[in-house]
Amino acid sequence: MKLRNNWYKADEGKHFVLTEKGKEECASYKYKTVGEPVDEYDYEAVKWSVDNGYVIEIDIPGWTKGLKGYEVVYYHKGKYRLSAGNPQIFPTRKAAEVYKKHYESYTWFNDTLVIEEVEYDGVPLSESKMYNGKEIVDKEHYFGLDAHEVGEYFTEDMIDSFMDLLLPACMRSDCSQIGEPCSSRIDENGKGRTTYSTFKKVDDGIWEYCGDCFRGENYMHGKDIPYVR
């Protein structure tokens, strides 16, 4: 592990998990599970928690080298290989295809995107749970909203994490919206309005992704704002 700015970063293929000592002596870890990461960012740990033996670095179960993944890239001027947005390797081709389609929708983007097969190291995906014949997106199977389609199902804990990011733009069972605007469109009255990533509850613990909708609404409508070069 490496130390920087009072934080340890785990070596590749390793993460930090809670110890018995940490659970007993650290009040903030009292309700955590021994042998499991104490928070979402399991590849980092604050220096005092490591030095005091509250968390330790161990091998990530199931870590595998040489997994098959997919990258969405383009070749600027035919020779410079660039990632579409932030570099990201998708573990499924479907996610890469959805992301590619999303990125191609940007009116300012005029290069040709391709999906390339690459190798990466990590933990193989487990089989997704299903609802009404569709896969349910949980933390393990979430690759960023740009890689998920309108109509996909999400677990309730994923929606809880989205709503905790910022003060929600709307928070009802039929319309829960992430607080940060993600785009803008022109409504039927010719008014430009911001849109928000939106979800609606369809069953116990299951939410449907509605796309980016106007505040307080759970369906997409309106026209894209023209892009002027």
Results as ranks from 00 to 15, higher is better:
Glu116Trp: 15
Tyr31His: 15
Tyr120Asn: 07
Ser173His: 15
Leu67Gly: 15
His102Thr: 15
Gly151Arg: 02
Gly192Asn: 10
Gly53His: 12
Pro37Gly: 01
Val34Ile: 15
Phe109Trp: 08
Gly66Asn: 08
Val38Leu: 05
Phe143Met: 13
Met163Ile: 11
Glu25Gly: 01
Ala147Pro: 02
Ile186Gln: 01
Trp48Tyr: 12
Gly78Gln: 05
Thr195Met: 02
Phe214Trp: 02
Ala45His: 02
Asp42Ala: 14
Ser176Thr: 14
Cys175Arg: 01
Met171Gly: 12
Lys139Gln: 14
Leu113Phe: 12
Val73Met: 13
Ala45Trp: 01
Glu71Met: 08
Asn86Cys: 11
Ser183Val: 08
Gly122Phe: 01
Glu127Gly: 04
Tyr209Asp: 01
Lys139Phe: 09
Ser197Phe: 05
Lys65Thr: 13
Ala96Tyr: 01
Arg215Ile: 10
Ala10Glu: 03
Ala96Gly: 05
Lys23Thr: 03
Cys182Ile: 12
Glu117Gly: 09
His76Met: 10
Val118Thr: 05
Trp207Pro: 00
Asn189His: 11
Val34Arg: 04
Tyr120Met: 04
Thr195Asp: 01
Asn132Met: 06
Pro168Cys: 06
Val98Tyr: 02
Val55Asp: 00
Thr155Arg: 00
Ala84Gln: 02
Leu67Cys: 09
Asp11Phe: 08
Lys200His: 12
Met163Val: 07
Thr194Gln: 09
Ser28Gln: 11
Tyr219Thr: 06
Asn5Glu: 15
Asp212Met: 03
Ala95Asp: 07
Tyr219Pro: 06
Tyr142Leu: 08
Lys47Gln: 15
Phe154Ser: 00
Gln88Asn: 15
Phe162Ala: 00
Phe16Gly: 00
Ile60Asp: 07
Pro91Thr: 11
Glu180Ile: 05
Phe109Pro: 04
Met163Phe: 10
Lys200Leu: 02
Ser128Cys: 14
Val72Gln: 09
Arg229Asp: 06
Val114Asp: 05
Gly62Phe: 14
Tyr75Phe: 09
Gly35Met: 13
Cys182Gln: 07
Pro91His: 06
Ser183Phe: 02
Leu82Thr: 08
Pro37Glu: 00
Arg185Asn: 14
Tyr8Gly: 05
Tyr29Cys: 02
Gly62Ile: 12
Lys101Gln: 10
Glu104Ala: 03
Tyr106Cys: 07
Lys9Leu: 10
Asp174Asn: 10
Thr155Gln: 01
Lys65Met: 02
Gly53Ile: 14
Gly222Phe: 03
Arg185Phe: 07
Glu152His: 12
Lys77Trp: 11
Val98Asp: 13
Val123Tyr: 02
Met171Asp: 06
Val46Ala: 08
Ser173Ile: 05
Cys182Phe: 05
Ile206Met: 00
Tyr43Asp: 03
Gly122Val: 01
Ala27Glu: 07
Tyr142Met: 06
Phe214Gln: 01
Asn110Glu: 14
Ala10Asp: 02
Asn86Val: 06
Lys14Trp: 11
Tyr106Leu: 12
Asp39Met: 03
Tyr142Trp: 08
